[in-house]
Amino acid sequence: MNPTPPRIHSQACWSCRGPTPAGLFCTTCNALLPPDMGANRFALFGLEPSYEPDAAILEKNHRALQKQLHPDFFAQRGPTERRLSLEWTTRLNEAWQTLTDPVARAGYLLELLGWKSTGRPALDPEFLEEVMTLREALEEVDPLAPDALPKLATLKTTARGRLKVEESQIAHWFRRAHSHEHPPSTDALGEIARLVDRMRYHRRYLEELDRLEDRAFDQDA
């Protein structure tokens, strides 16, 4: 069965002006109806907010919705439906990207739970030390040296490993928060936010490794 994502219910159908029961399309005149811009991104795919959403359902529903809503299927329709299709699929893609990315997903869940970021990540000494070690390792790599590629590969494996650990820690905290606390404690959310910051750092670090790797590869010709 296809999911029916949230859309605006209170209004009359823009096309036939009649009442509009649930569904993406008007049951009377079959016009595409506007999305509910305020609805959360999980609900779009018929899912409950969770850090570990069912990937198979997500994929299946995303595809089913794109098959109904993509602008390619509205090329012969009037301007209103073309615009609505653009709005729907823009939201679908935005939600899809949030839900399939562990960092964005955590950030979005924190937002839904009312967590207000302080802006700057807190600098705990333990993490600072790790950052220094990672920096030093990076500076030791000369992208033009013959051993650059294997060295970079090792550093990448390490950074990817950290990301995996952080992701599973975040999953753990979210599970705990859901099963024990209603609403989740500020401590739990703060811990998750701290881990998200770390993931962001490790991602940027990986990006830097990527750039060095590109340079090393270009030299390899």
């Binding site: 159908c13 036939c16 009377t28 005149c29 016009a31 009037g78 301007p79």
Partner: peptide
Amino acid sequence: VEADRVLAAAGAA
């Protein structure tokens, strides 16, 4: 295209 839509919608209504 717009007129066709309006007519189809009215017919459905």
